[in-house]
Simulated assay, not measured.
Amino acid sequence: MNNKLNAISTFLCVAKAGSFSAAARQSGMKQSAVSQQIAALEQELGVVLLHRTTRSMKLTEQGERYSRDMQLVLDAMREAEMRLDPVDQQFQGRVHVQLPSGLGQIFLPHLLSLQRLHPELHLMLSLDDRIADLVTEGVDVAIRLSSEPPLAHAARVLARVETALFAAPEFQAVHSVSELATLPHVRFSGIPLDAPLRLLSQEETLDVKVNTVFRANTSDALLQALESGIGIGGMQLPLAARALKNGTLVPILPAWRLPDRFLYAVFPDARFIPQRVRRVVSVIEQLLPEIMKKN
């Protein structure tokens, strides 16, 4: 049993390092011993895990699947062993968290405090509005804003996020939805250029064609564009709160709002979510009631 676990660990090291020589250096083994362990594992499993040439190494389809599954198994074993220790080890190890750029800036001071309180926790934060490939990029949990849950991964709703229209104080007054079609607009670049702006009131839903003059792929760039006075745009209330308080943004048509979005915690695999990942998500979730207030 121990020999097989060693071979599996060696295989995972090779898969992560990308070559036998790199895996040998990292593990302190001879390259020939690494090769022998992989060959013995392949013989026992009856499948080829790695395609080898004199210059390169690549996982087979079975190798990729086995690598993902065995990493989950070893992580679960380590988690079980940690729970045997009476010392609280829930905040130990690496946790790679992807956050939307705007909300990520709000969460950042709290996550830095968490890191200071738990030196054995190794946070890796990606503040990014793109949709990352959780498996290939090694993301443990992605905090995502979306109108619906992702189809490919396990997800849990953390909060509902309201979005409204804003502009700089010096921007011209807007009295009706019909005026929006003739005014310059600021929008997220992930939205198709010709997509209408959907607005909701208590009584109705309208789709309005708008004149988009500025697009950006981060919330901070959109916020600065709105504050500069170049147009009207939608912004999640938590992201607009400080600008509203400072007077650099004002609401536009407050009786109307954009469709609500939801904040999800998205996990690469629901079969095993390490306790340290659950704990970090719990910390984020505890912050949300205060962050989501309409300041």
Rank of each mutant, 00 (worst) to 15 (best):
N246S: 14
Q92D: 02
A216M: 09
H185F: 15
V73P: 01
L253E: 04
L114Y: 03
I230S: 03
I291L: 14
T218G: 03
Q90T: 07
V141G: 07
V213F: 00
L41G: 01
S219T: 14
L197M: 13
S113L: 09
L180T: 11
E81T: 05
A132Q: 08
P119Y: 02
G138K: 10
R83S: 13
A39Y: 14
H51C: 05
P274L: 06
F267P: 02
V157E: 14
D69K: 11
S126H: 11
W256K: 06
N2L: 07
D88P: 15
E203I: 00
L111V: 00
L111Y: 04
E162N: 14
G104C: 04
V87Q: 12
A240S: 14
V73M: 12
D75S: 12
Y66A: 15
L59H: 11
T53S: 15
L117G: 06
S19T: 08
L206P: 00
S282Y: 03
N246L: 15
F262D: 02
L99D: 08
S27N: 07
S189I: 09
V73Y: 07
A164K: 11
V283W: 04
H175G: 05
W256V: 10
Q286W: 03
V97F: 01
D140T: 01
E120F: 01
Q89S: 09
E162Q: 15
R160G: 15
L183P: 06
N3Y: 08
H51L: 12
I131P: 00
P150Y: 03
N3W: 08
S146W: 00
M82H: 03
K58L: 12
V281A: 07
Y264R: 00
A132F: 01
S126G: 06
I106K: 10
D194L: 11
L206E: 09
K209L: 10
Q71L: 07
D207A: 12
T182V: 05
F91T: 00
K58H: 09
R144Q: 14
Q90P: 00
F272Q: 11
Q115W: 05
S27V: 01
M1N: 09
L45A: 09
A168N: 08
Y66I: 11
E44W: 00
V87L: 07
V161M: 13
L151E: 13
Q92R: 09
S219N: 15
P259N: 06
N2S: 09
N3Q: 13
R215L: 12
A216L: 08
R68Q: 15
T10E: 05
P149T: 00
P150H: 04
L222I: 15
R276Q: 12
T54P: 05
L258N: 10
P192Q: 04
P289E: 00
R261M: 14
L145R: 07
M124P: 00
E64V: 08
T136N: 11
G229F: 11
Q98L: 03
L12M: 06
A167Y: 09
